[in-house]
């Protein structure tokens, strides 16, 4: 889990591809990822799980600025792209996603089989 694959900016347009920053934690049942993608919307984000790779792509949809003159800017229109290698402990059918305040939260549930199981010892009488 969580090894970045090499990412090369593919965009040749004025939009720039950013690698969104992420927080990741693990529990017994799941992995939780939080990625910051300001300006993206629920509909502009694509999440795919394929061949042990989790790919997150998004586009920021900023207010239309045609007719406006930029006086000063510290960021460009953004496309977001980041991929993670995931182990086979993740059930790709059980992925939950939520997008709130520009932060994408992903819950990747683990397969039942890989969850820790407590084994009770039978005492022979």
């Amino acid at each position: 889990m969580a090894t970045d694959k090499s990412l090369i900016s593919e965009s040749k347009s004025s939009r720039r591809v950013y690698v969104p920053v992420a927080d990741i934690y693990e529990t017994e049942d799941l992995y939780c990822l939080k990625l910051e993608m300001p300006g993206a919307t629920k509909d502009s984000i694509d999440i795919t799980v394929e061949n042990n790779e989790l790919l997150i792509e998004g586009k920021s949809v900023l207010e239309d600025n045609a007719g406006r003159q930029i006086r000063y800017s510290e960021f460009s229109n953004m496309d977001y792209k980041r991929s993670f290698r995931i182990g086979n402990d993740i059930d790709s059918n059980k992925v939950e996603a939520k997008f709130e305040d520009g932060v994408l939260t992903l819950l990747l549930y683990k397969h039942e089989a890989v969850k820790p199981k407590k084994i009770t010892i039978n005492t022979a009488n």
């Binding site: 993608m37 300001p38 207010e63 406006r68 003159q69 930029i70």
Partner: peptide, 15 residues
């Protein structure tokens, strides 16, 4: 910071 006629529009990233 963007300008449009008499208007000034400030956009900021606040995730």
């Amino acid at each position: 910071i963007e300008e449009e006629g008499d208007k000034l529009i400030i956009t900021s990233l606040m995730p």
